[in-house]
């Protein structure tokens, strides 16, 4: 159910990219898609606190067994850390591409004097 809401958000972003005429709104649409995917990735490793979920840091206490390695209890309760690492990477990549995208929008505005993509049409054929 939650996953389908994520997918809905993704589709709203895609709709925005395909339908909107303003360059800035298109950029916002791409960001929406990106956030939907990030949310999806985080949810893959998600566990309820009520079920006793803990952060994936094996600090000590009953989470470590006698040999000093992580215990079975820890494995069954900790949140999956991998998707969080993925999301961090994808946020950084998103930041880079957002900066470039906004820079292109600003330069286009300087040249054409408008953000309306129906009026920025020199290339055709």
């Amino acid at each position: 159910m939650l996953y389908s809401l994520c997918f809905l958000l993704f589709m709203i972003g895609l709709y925005c990219v395909l339908v909107k005429k303003n360059m800035i709104k298109i950029v916002v649409g791409i960001l929406l898609m990106e956030y939907a995917v990030n949310l999806f990735l985080v949810m893959l490793g998600w566990r309820k606190v009520a079920d006793g979920a803990v952060a994936p840091i094996a600090a000590g206490g009953d989470l470590l067994d006698k040999a000093g390695t992580v215990s079975q209890l820890f494995v069954s309760r900790a949140v999956d850390p991998l998707p969080q690492a993925l999301v961090l990477t994808s946020i950084v990549i998103g930041l880079g591409s957002l900066a470039l995208m906004v820079a292109i929008c600003i330069r286009t505005y300087e040249k054409y004097g408008t953000f309306d993509i129906t009026r920025i049409r020199r290339l055709k054929g």
């Binding site: 791409i30 591409s97 286009t108 040249k111 920025i120």
Partner: peptide
């Protein structure tokens, strides 16, 4: 950074980002 280049870059970038997503 001329008219055509910027227009093409924006179009390419939007579709490329959608593909990446």
């Amino acid at each position: 950074c001329q008219h055509e280049e910027l227009e093409a870059a924006f179009k390419y970038m939007v579709l490329g980002s959608v593909a990446s997503m």
